[in-house]
Structure formats: structure tokens, C-alpha cells
Design a protein around this nucleic acid. Structure first.
Lengths: 366, 366
DNA sequence: GTGAAAGCGCTAACAT
DNA sequence: ATGTTAGCGCTTTCAC
């Protein structure tokens, strides 16, 4: 049996196809109930392709992230979906797998099928976004963005967050601190390293090349970078890991090498992990509002789709230091400072970030 | 400037639209290079909606999972994507959020836009799959399936895996064992509980109602169920958690209550976690091949799309017990058995599962 | 509020 | 191998 078309419904309900179309799209029509009965009876569903072809709208948007396996991105997506439910838009998700090439192919495909795009680009200087512009598809960046851009964006205060981590480590008395940063051609990779280094410099502490590790944003990156750090004659007494996955990798390397945290080495991560409090030891991290970030991105996109589009809007969300127990004073504090104070004085100058009032918190019960 | 159509390209290259169409779809045509030049010059991209409307194929498939936040599903998706890259099909991902209602809406939308569906259904007795059948869209189940079904499916040996967990706990000498199961109207929820109970019964051990906890598959479910268990006059000395998220929740409850694992209570989970080895203590789990499961599902779907469709195929993947250190003999072993043997003798009768040779392993270094 | 008619952009038949 | 023609199923004028 052939699939029913709008003509079949029209005939059965004794109206014109145009009227059926209006009814289906929610307009009030006189024969509404009769049409609905015909629709149910024939099990009619509009053909999406025909609708799109004719009207030019798809009623769907796409989200492209570099690694769906990363809990941060899962949370982000959840936030976006919560805004778009219950429709009329459906949201499709795609993975670029941290590959510029894959991302480009994926986006090229998607811009032909969706009305808008939320993108966490793989690098800061790629050309993928042009595909969206060329296709006339509104785009908003999340988590990462291009260097100079006319697109909307929602990122977090990477520089400030990393600075917070550095200040915390310094206040504990650490002077030999290392950093495992992500690729420097990404917004968070570069921003977090910059913020960390700046804060160190303000305290007159240097980040030697050997302590300045760059790696990929996955577990393997953190694992290998930590191995290199441990291989040094004089490893750092504290290390900042630029994201959650790297941090897990670094912890595995430490565990394998028998290095105790925080007794032998302190660790601060960026991005909270659902399991962070269950780890051995519970992880001190820079935490950011992931779901909320997704929701804001969705709202920005929606306002574009609704046509109320002004100049590009860039929103930056505040982050906070979540204290758990993976940080402690160094094994032998060289210069005694406020090293015993677990509530470090963070009077160091810092440009204020939107609405950040409580920047340091202890982890609550669960 | 209007978007270029196939007619514009045809005119510029002095051929017919049909020839351009053939070229675009990879056929060899004489004027190939001229056409390509015209395409590049005009920046022509075929309109997906028009292609689909005319040809009836979308060149995309969809994956619908109940919780993209669950690492198991992330891995599954990764496996699927690896099969479909580099095209010509694109894969879109959707989240049903463990809600039958959301799932139904999402699938209803998707079947209008994709050529095939890979679905991890929310429950075992829902009607969503009928949407796919009605729309003539091939469907394959992963992880979960309906009770009686004519669709392809790829699941894992839930019953056997849970049995393995029970046998392990028993062999350590536990007699007061509890289970935190998922919803019984899901394949893994029911299967894992059944397998656990059966194995217990074979050893003459009962699962009292109070030890038989049912909860949602999320962290909150595990947390609350464990709280209930701890509230008992005589809590179990070992607990089996039916999935990774629940297990994390249960661990948080234990941590909050100051119950030590495995000293005071042993824990076995189902599904490995990336972080499982970093937890305090490293978690003993039933592990299954997630990415591989996704790949198999993708292949099954592809064979359907290719038309080589016979009767429904059901594949069941083997699982294994991954020994770490969250399990140990009970505080005071009531009856001394082989309670000190960490390599339990699993001579208990069990129907063989496809290709399972090494069902118990110790966790390797990292 | 409703109907008639045109056409979105493409590909499948068919003819050459 | 290529061109001609028709039409996929819908929505949108435009007239009433």
C-alpha cells in the first residue's frame, strides 16, 4: 500500500490540499476535525523532504562536538536539547572526533539539512565555519571559537580559571609547578595555558619548558605528558591538567608510577567529572556550568533563527575552583608561606568576570 | 545572489541537467572536468531536500539512545560512527533521555528523514518501533530490545554476566548479597536481575526482598537504592550494581555513609568505566565490548539498507568479569569456604555464550 | 477561510 | 553516453 499523500487526505476529507496543509501546520480551519480523522485513518505523515524543498525550512538544528565521549560535551548537549524540547525543532548531534577533516565533511553535509548550527570547532583557524556562512546557515560557537569572528559564541573564562588553579597551587607553597595543556590552536588549549602562565609570572614563578607540556585533549595526551614529566630529573610538585580526560590520563600515569596524590604531587583539573569525588583522591578542579552553557548557545541560535539578529554576541561564563583533596602543600615546602592555609588568599589582581561572586568552594557532601 | 541550481551548472557547462546530476553522483561523463569547473565556479551544492524528494533516499541513518551522558552509549555511538565514516551516509544522533514519550516523538521525526535507525529502546514493551515499520525504515536494536520482535538486534549476555558477578561474590564467601537492578521493563534491567538471582539460587542463596532493589539507570537510582540498603538492620555484605551510573551513585552513598569498600562491603558493577581503575577502590566490573557492539549494529543495518535482508538476526555478545579491588571476602565470613581464593572456581552450570573463552581477567596496568 | 495552480530542485524513465 | 520530459509531495501565492 502506497504511502498516503496530502491529496489522499484532502480527497477523503473533501477539502483542498491547501487546507490540509494549513491544518497540519496548526492553523485553524473549519474542517479541522474531519481532516484529522482522515489523517488518522490514512496514517498520513507529511514527507519531510517535500516540506523542506518547498518551504526552505527544515525544523532541525545540528550540534557538532569534537568528542561526544567527553562528559563535558555530553552535558553541553543535554543543555541544548533541553531548550529545544519539545520542538518544533529537532536537534541532531554529530561528532567531529577532534579531526578538522571529519568536521569539515560533517558540517558540509549538515548545512544542507538543518536551519542552524552549534559548533565546537576543532581548531581556531579552520575554514569550516565558512561553509555555514556560504550556505546561509546561522552558526554559534560553544566552548571554542575562531580567532576573529563575526559569529555568536559562548565560552567560559579559560584564562581566569587557569589563573585560579595557578593561584591555588602557589598559595599552597608550590614553586615547581607543571602544566599539561591542550593543543594551542584551540580556544581552551591556548587560553588555559596563557592564564596559568600569567598567574605564575605575577608571582615571579617561571614555567620551564620541561614543565610546559602540550598534548592532545584525550586521555592518551594526559597520560603521555605526565610520563614525560615524571621522567624529569626533578619533576614538578604540582600539575595543572587542562581538561578532564587529560587529567584522568595523568592520574593513570601517576598510579602506574606509584606516585601518590597529593602527598608526592598535587593535581588540579579543568572541568568537573561526575566521578571526580569518587576518585582516589577526590579531585580538585576548575568547574564550569556546562549544561547552562549549552542552553545559552541554544537561545542565541534561536534568536538568530527568529530573525532578531543584531551584531554578534559573545558571552563568557565564569568558572570556579572546586576544592577537594588532590592538592596539598609540596612534600618539602621550600619557602614557608601561608602554605598551611587551605583557603588561599587570592588578592592577586584579576579582571572581573561576569557575575563571579563565589569563585572558590568546597565540594559538598555528594 | 541566489543559490546556484543544477540548471545553472548545466548551462555554464553546456550540458543537460541530467548529465550534471550523473556527474555529481559519481558516474563517468564526458564533460566531467567542465562540469566540475562550473560547479566550483558557481559554488554549487545539491539541495538535499530535492534529492531526497525525488530519489526517496536520504543517505543518513539515525542512532537513538536513552542517555548520551552514559559512557557506554558514547562508546557505542563511536563504534557506529567508525563504520559509517567516510560516508556516503551521515549518522545523526538523538537522545531519548530515558523517556518513552521523548523517544516516540524523536523517532517519529527521524523516520521521516533517515534511511535506517539504530535504537536502544527505553522499555521492552513500547510501540515506538512500529513507527519505523510503518514508515518502512529498517531498524536494529542495540543493548535493549522488545520482547518479541522481528527486528535485528545486538545485545550482550546480561544474564550470563550478572551470573558471573553473583558467582564471584559467592566464591568470596558472601551470603548476604544485594542487587541494585534497573527497571525490569528493560532488557538489561530484567536480564541482569534474572541472571543474578538464578546464580544465587543455584548456590542455595536467597535474595530477600529488602536486598532486591529496583531503581532507575542513573546515578540517582543507585544512590537512593544504596541508601535504602544501608538503612536495613542487616545490610548486605556485597552488592551488584546493574550499570555504571548506578554504581557511581551507590559508591557516593557508601562514601557519604563512611562505609569502606571492600572492607565493609564488596561492590561489582556492570559496564566498565574509563575511570573505574582510578576510583577508590578500583572497581570490579562486568565488562562488555561497547564499540564493537556498535559496529556490529551498523553492519546489520547496512546489510538491510543494501537489501540483502533475510529473517531477523539476533546477535549476543559475551561479557567478562574484570577483577579489580572492590570485592573481597565479607567482614566475618560466616561459613568458611574457598573464601580466600581470589580466583573463584566457576564450575557452576551455565549455558555457553558465543565465543567466551576467557571470562575472567585481572585489570592490566593502565 | 478556502481553492486553483504553479513550482521548489532534483533524478528516473525513456528516447536517442 | 546524453538529452527531454515529467513529476516526487508539498506550500505558497493569488484570487475569491
Amino acid at each position: 500500500m502506497r504511502r498516503a499523500t496530502i491529496y489522499d487526505v484532502a480527497e477523503l476529507a473533501s477539502v483542498s490540499p491547501a487546507t490540509v496543509s494549513r491544518h497540519v501546520r496548526g492553523h485553524r480551519v473549519r474542517a479541522g476535525t474531519a481532516i484529522q480523522r482522515a489523517i488518522d485513518q490514512l496514517d498520513y505523515w507529511p514527507t519531510a523532504a517535500a516540506q523542506s524543498l518547498r518551504s526552505g525550512v527544515h525544523y532541525s538544528i545540528a550540534v557538532v562536538v569534537p568528542d561526544i565521549t567527553n562528559p563535558y560535551f555530553s552535558a553541553l548537549v543535554k543543555g541544548i536539547e533541553s531548550v529545544y524540547r519539545p520542538g518544533p525543532y529537532s536537534v541532531v548531534l554529530a561528532n567531529s572526533d577532534e579531526s578538522e577533516k571529519v568536521e569539515d565533511a560533517v558540517v558540509a553535509e549538515l548545512v544542507r539539512r538543518v536551519d542552524g548550527l552549534i559548533l565546537a570547532p576543532v581548531t581556531e583557524d579552520e575554514e569550516t565555519p565558512l561553509r555555514a556562512r556560504d550556505a546561509g546557515v546561522p552558526l554559534v560557537f560553544v566552548d571554542r571559537m575562531l580567532k576573529e569572528t563575526t559569529f555568536d559564541s559562548v565560552i567560559v573564562d579559560n584564562v581566569g580559571g587557569a589563573g585560579l588553579a595557578a593561584a591555588h597551587l602557589l598559595s599552597l607553597g608550590h614553586r615547581k609547578v607543571g602544566a599539561i595543556s591542550g593543543p594551542l590552536d584551540t580556544t581552551p588549549g591556548r587560553g588555559r595555558r596563557d592564564g596559568f602562565v600569567q598567574q605564575l609570572e605575577q608571582a615571579g614563578v617561571e614555567l620551564p619548558d620541561a614543565y610546559d607540556q602540550i598534548a592532545n585533549f584525550r586521555e592518551s595526551g594526559g597520560f603521555e605528558a605526565m610520563l614525560r614529566l615524571l621522567d624529569l630529573d626533578e619533576p614538578p610538585t604540582a600539575v595543572f591538567c587542562a581538561n578532564n580526560l587529560m587529567c584522568a590520563g595523568a592520574l593513570k600515569a601517576l598510579k602506574g608510577a606509584g606516585v601518590r596524590v597529593p602527598t608526592d604531587m598535587s593535581i588540579v583539573g579543568f572541568d568537573d567529572l561526575d566521578m571526580a569525588s569518587l576518585l582516589d583522591p577526590p579531585l580538585t578542579v576548575i568547574d564550569r556550568p556546562s549544561e547552562e552553557q549549552g542552553m545559552i548557545a541554544a537561545h542565541l541560535l534561536q534568536s538568530r533563527l527568529a530573525g532578531s539578529a543584531e551584531s554578534p554576541r559573545h558571552v563568557m561564563l565564569p568558572v570556579r575552583l572546586l576544592l577537594r583533596t588532590s592538592t596539598a602543600p609540596p612534600p618539602k615546602a621550600v619557602r614557608r608561606m601561608t602554605a598551611t592555609s587551605t583557603s588561599p588568599s587570592l588578592s592577586t589582581g584579576r579582571k572581573g568576570t561576569a557575575g563571579s561572586n563565589r569563585r572558590i568552594c568546597r565540594d559538598r557532601a555528594r
